[in-house]
Design a protein around this nucleic acid. Structure first.
Lengths: 341, 341
DNA sequence: CTGAAAGCGCTAACAG
DNA sequence: CTGTTAGCGCTTTCAG
């Protein structure tokens, strides 16, 4: 049975009444302001504990413009963002802050600067600053200090931590070429993100570098999303002259590529090599462990959070952090099979 | 350089002024109340978009007692809770809610009902309900509807989703016994959680069932935490007559056991078999892939969130969900080596 | 040292 | 249909 058993919230007024003091006094005790006698302080504190009182974050921030909580804004809690979150959570222990992760209803307006809305909703109330994961808007100033992870913009206007996507894509594609592949496809990510653009560039340059002509029919776009990757993957792989290898812009779409390939009767890696990007746990856990370009996700989350904390406290920090990626070889790539022309 | 570039927050009053209407009108437009002419509604909406306005969650909830956001309260964002979070995030898409995950500063008061404080801070402002992960308090009624995952209590007072810990522990221990082990240790979890107690019970019963006497010197407690697991693991494994297998109450402590074992010069699985519990991604990813009892973490998060949504909307739901666990065999267990007595 | 009072941004009656 | 008014729970002057 669904019994909704709820108590009334205990407010500061309740505490004040129980303690026989004014709310102002309680407030001062709560916030460790001085000007309250030790005796009263102790008394009020006991009542607070007894009643299990904790200041309402909403009301508190409404008035004081500072809450001691940092936000992590994501479009969704998927493998990429949760790895970042783990890192941020690790980093926050060394600070005085609490961590609040927020994922609004981005499913309504897909790529439309959701972070702006989230931020507007949470800042100036609730959070003192935020790290935003893959923001898609063009905004660069917000109501609170912000650091972005893997942002949209081709600008230094926002403190940012990201990985070298160009280099990673170049490495991944070159790896495929070195394996002997010449027909190498690319399934791109969200075209509004800089990371995605860089990955495509790295892919193209690696091809050129290997003396392979770029074939646009081998290029699709999956928006970094499994759902969106299926159709383009199917299209590329259904061609008579299909590629023998595909570099996918992130692991989740790489996995989707493999699924589509198998539906089409292809064996991975025998008939098709697939390499991903990110190295989320799901990549290693997949039935066919995925070869991928690893980003130090946890570290990125940590760095971003530390950066944010420093920025808020007015410290000087390097605001553009670029981390290296690393090839992780697993089972999804192999030299191409010899096929009849 | 650390330039903190921030704009002022745009408030409802700003919008009202820009639109040449009252805040009440704006409020009604924002909340889709009727009673505003289509023309004005459209006009106000345009201004809102232009200014990038979004209602302050804090102020909004302070007044309306309902925010359309559901909370997920965790002590920390570690592998266990983030897997649950992924599931919850999946489930929330089908609802009208937004998801807010919160991890306060539990490092202050370790096992002391942190969830009460988090909830007090967020509820009655901010969230309409919450799923609480491994709450440690004894409270059963809260200011908002709540569902617990893996709670403390031996009670049905709280809507709960959890796994069959007793059965899982029994299976895990039996597996070790079937492999031929007779000296089987146990590294327990947070003793205040029911899951932990059940796992110890399952361990003991499985031993008895296998005709093995329980040796208390083989039993330690790691609080489900890597840090806390090290010392007891070292103690158990340093004994002259050390066990040849250890069942750890969760994966993270199992991994810690392996690390300690290796420091002590033991080879896993040759000299020591280790089995964990949970099947977080880290278990499979560990250098020595960990054999473990899998909990359907994502599913648990989904179920809990759906339960919460239903409870809030007054629907009848089964409030005590018990999910099965499953043995996942990987590389950390082997039959015991023959050793000289 | 303590309390009264004002007001943060918003919503909910209630008048006009 | 629209604006005025009164708070939500809290912090912060400012008098006592």
């Amino acid at each position: 049975m669904a019994t909704v058993n709820t108590t009334a919230r205990v407010t500061m007024a309740d505490v004040a009444q129980a303690a026989g003091v004014s709310v102002a006094t309680v407030s001062k005790v709560v916030n460790n302001k001085d000007g309250i006698s030790p005796a009263r302080t102790a008394h009020v504190r006991r009542i607070i504990d007894e009643m299990g009182y904790a200041a309402s974050l909403g009301a508190q921030s409404l008035r004081s413009r500072s809450t001691g909580v940092l936000g992590m804004l994501v479009a969704e809690f998927e493998p990429f963002s949760t790895e970042l979150l783990k890192g941020a959570s690790r980093a926050i222990k060394a600070t005085e802050y609490e961590l609040l992760a927020y994922s609004g209803r981005s499913h309504s307006a897909p790529e439309d600067g959701w972070e702006r809305r989230h931020l507007a909703r949470l800042s100036g109330a609730l959070i003192d600053g935020a790290v935003i994961v893959t923001p898609s808007g063009t905004e660069t100033i917000f109501p609170v200090p912000v650091v972005a992870i893997d942002p949209h913009l081709d600008t230094d206007a926002l403190p940012t931590v990201r990985c070298n996507s160009y280099d990673g894509a170049f490495q991944a594609t070159s790896y495929l070429a070195e394996l002997g592949h010449t027909k190498i496809g690319y399934l791109g990510g969200r075209s509004d993100l800089k990371s995605s653009q860089e990955r495509e560039l790295g892919y193209r340059d690696a091809l050129l570098n290997a003396g392979i002509a770029v074939n646009d029919a081998y290029i699709g776009q999956g928006d970094y999303l499994p759902e969106a990757s299926q159709a383009p993957a199917r299209e590329i792989l259904s061609r008579e002259d299909r590629p023998t290898a595909i570099f996918a812009a992130n692991d989740l779409s790489a996995i989707e590529v493999i699924k589509v390939a198998e539906e089409l009767g292809l064996n991975v890696p025998r008939d098709l090599s697939v390499i991903g990007f990110d190295n989320v746990p799901e990549a290693a856990l997949f039935r066919i462990p995925l070869t991928t370009m690893a980003q130090p996700l946890g570290e990125m989350g940590e760095i971003a959070l530390n950066m944010l904390a420093k920025i808020i406290s007015g410290e000087e920090v390097e605001t553009q952090v670029l981390l290296p990626v690393e090839l992780v070889v697993r089972d999804s790539c192999a030299p191409p099979q010899h096929r009849a022309q």
